Computed example of a mutant assay.
Amino acid sequence: MDIVIEKPSHQHITEIAQICAAGWRQTVEGRLSKAYQDKNVAYWYNHDKVRSDIDSGNYSHVALIDSKVVGTIGGAMTGPERGDVYVLYVDEAYRYQGIGRRLLGALTDKQIAEGALEQWVSVEKDNWHGIPFYKARGFVLQGEQMTEVASGETQVSLKYRRDVG
C-alpha cells in the first residue's frame, strides 16, 4: 500500500468533508444529540467551508492511496512558538495502518519549520481513537474544557500538549 501525503486541493473537498463528518460523529456518538451533530456537520464540513479551510491552510495535508483521500489533518500556528492541531481524521477502513502518524508528522514538521516549540490538540472526552493516539505520541493532558453548545448540551474537550522543539 503506497501512501502519499500532500497538500490538499479543491479536488479533495468531497472526500475531506465525508471523512471529517463521519469521524467527528463517531467521537461524539451517544454524547451529543443527532440534531446538534447534523447542525455541526452542516457548518464545519460543507463544501464551501472545506474549500475555504483548504485555501486558508487550515487543512494542511491529505493522505492518498491510489489518488483516493483516506485521511486529512489541519492546524495552524496559534502563537509564536505554539502549533495547534485542529482536525485529524482517517477513513475508518484505513485506520491503524500508520496514516494518522504520518499525517501528524507532516503537520508537526511544518509547524516546527514555522517556529513551533510546543503543539496542542483538543480531543473529545471518551474519544478512544484519539486519546491513545495522541498519548502514544507524547501529548500530555493539560486540562478539561466544558462548553455549552447552542443546543444546550455540554461538550467536553480534553486539552493535550507536547514539546516539539
Rank of each mutant, 00 (worst) to 15 (best):
K7F: 00
Q119Y: 12
G143L: 11
S9G: 15
D91R: 14
T108G: 07
E81H: 14
I5V: 11
T147G: 03
L141F: 15
M77L: 06
S33H: 05
Q111I: 03
V156H: 06
L32H: 09
M146N: 12
S52C: 11
V62P: 03
V164C: 03
Q155Y: 15
V149H: 11
F133E: 02
G105W: 01
V70R: 12
L103M: 02
I13W: 06
N127T: 04
K125A: 14
H129K: 03
G143E: 09
R95L: 03
K68C: 01
R95C: 02
K159P: 01
K49E: 12
P80E: 07
V164K: 11
D84L: 11
H129M: 03
P132Q: 02
P80T: 02
A93L: 10
Q97E: 13
K7Q: 03
G105P: 00
W120F: 10
V69Q: 07
R31Y: 13
L117T: 14
D84W: 06
Y134H: 00
D2Q: 11
K39V: 00
S56E: 10
T72M: 14
R95D: 00
E29Y: 14
E81S: 13
R95P: 05
S52I: 11
H10D: 10
G165K: 15
Q37N: 04
Q11P: 00
H12S: 04
D163R: 12
L103V: 09
S60M: 00
A21Q: 04
T147A: 10
R102Y: 00
Y89H: 09
V50S: 10
K159G: 01
A116K: 10
G98N: 07
M146F: 05
N46I: 05
P80Q: 07
V70G: 07
Q119S: 09
D163G: 05
W120G: 14
M146Y: 08
S9T: 07
G23N: 09
C20S: 14
F139Q: 04
G115C: 09
K110C: 02
A21P: 05
G100Q: 05
